[in-house]
Design a protein around this nucleic acid. Structure first.
Lengths: 229, 229
DNA sequence: GTATATTTGTGTATAAATAACACATAAATT
DNA sequence: AATTTATGTGTTATTTATACACAAATATAC
């Protein structure tokens, strides 16, 4: 019961997801400069300072280590097993974050890079218990996409409907009927056609661009209408 | 980045729920013996020791403070605002737990009691940020009851169907059609009729007693069949 | 510049799930 | 014996989900 005897450090780690319809879902990793696991890939994170909140700590670490502009941040889980860090007792509060493609730079193609995006199908070995953390995050985003409108945080501000469709197929890992998906999504009344059409990026009919209306979503939520896709 | 500079304590707190069809959902609280908030009601909890896991810390605190036999324990959320505890920086990893009615002793009727069950409709003032924690826990259990079979952890081992029905109505805060509810619940194939009937507890036709079959539930889950009520 | 390939856009018919609804039965109580 | 109280059960209507195919707009190949 005496807190002065405690020797536990508290850290935050973040699982940052990015997405492109071409390359699928990817996660931001950093290469550790110092021991333990120097040279290994790991989730961005670090120790919490005495006077900052947990969210401030994550934002600061992400800013410092990756320079990425975060659009969505949510607490994931707290990992506290006594042996998870060889330096001593470290409890890690983990977060998962989503970034838009503007922030998703080219994938690193060499070991020389310090931070890089990795396709979640082609992950390197990870330090500490980070594989477990990442697995938890992937489960979370897979589930959450169905009952919270977080998918939009992974797409451009204005996006063709096909991008949204492909995102859901990617996360579900299964094909979804295009017409039924559109019918359902549009019935939620949270998407607006922007009037613009996509600047051509290949052959095919030019797609209308849609936008997520967050205010509309909150209005409907207050009325008890739930997002469910 | 230097962990030796950190002065953050780590604690665990638990929201323990109990249920009786007569009295509804209740939560286990303790009266604090020491400052800060001496004499105030609070969630059971305490500081984590250097070599125990977070789950071990919760179990130990619950054992020490309340003697309650926990049947279900799940991490809830981690609260880490810099000013949440007047003693200094304390990050609290919170859990929510469920106990069966055998463990639910009579509600305390006087201030003299040290630990007591409170109907969640008639809560006393709570210390620290515990109102927020409790609110988070209530939201969690309300949602979770619909897609995980946790309700059974709040009922006796063998229960009449009406108890399950009333539990769901209580948590949802709305009436549920008795026939439709039974049809749906039975179609999940995770309940077994025990053959026994309830020892009479009032007038009315004697009810058959049912049992939750956890193994069956896991088997179905592996086949991809989901619990949803 | 015409034909072909590619992607977007849209509606209807069928099947499945959910919601609404009422009366008989077994026991306790009067 | 009559009444009260709680349990037990099935059918129909409504809503929601699923399956499915062809036309339109542009780029590309010839």
């Amino acid at each position: 019961m005496n807190p002065s005897r405690q020797h536990i450090q508290i850290a935050v780690d973040a699982v940052v997801f990015g997405y492109r319809s071409a390359s699928g879902l990817s996660v931001l990793l950093i290469r550790r400069r110092f021991a333990p696991h120097a040279g290994a890939w790991a989730l961005p994170g670090g120790f919490v300072r005495d006077h900052e909140s947990l969210e401030e700590a994550v934002s600061r670490e992400l800013e410092e280590e990756t320079g990425v502009n975060i659009r969505y941040l949510e607490q994931l889980y707290t990992f506290g097993d006594a042996d998870r860090d060889p330096r001593g007792r470290v409890v890690s509060v983990t977060y998962f974050a989503l970034v838009k493609p503007e922030n998703l730079r080219i994938f690193a193609d060499s070991d020389a890079e310090e931070t890089a995006w990795f396709d979640i199908q082609k992950l390197p070995e990870l330090a500490f218990d980070h594989p477990r953390i990442l697995k938890t995050a992937i489960e979370r985003i897979r589930n959450k996409i169905s009952y919270e409108p977080i998918g939009f945080e992974l797409l451009e501000e204005k996006f063709p409907f096909a991008d949204l469709h492909t995102l859901y197929e990617t996360l579900r890992g299964a094909p979804i009927d295009r017409r039924n998906f559109k019918k359902k999504m549009m019935s939620l009344q949270i998407l607006e056609e922007s009037g613009e059409r996509r600047k051509q990026a290949g052959s095919g009919r030019p797609a209308a661009l849609y936008q997520f209306n967050k205010e509309k979503y909150f209005q409907l939520k207050e009325k008890g209408i739930v997002f469910e896709v």
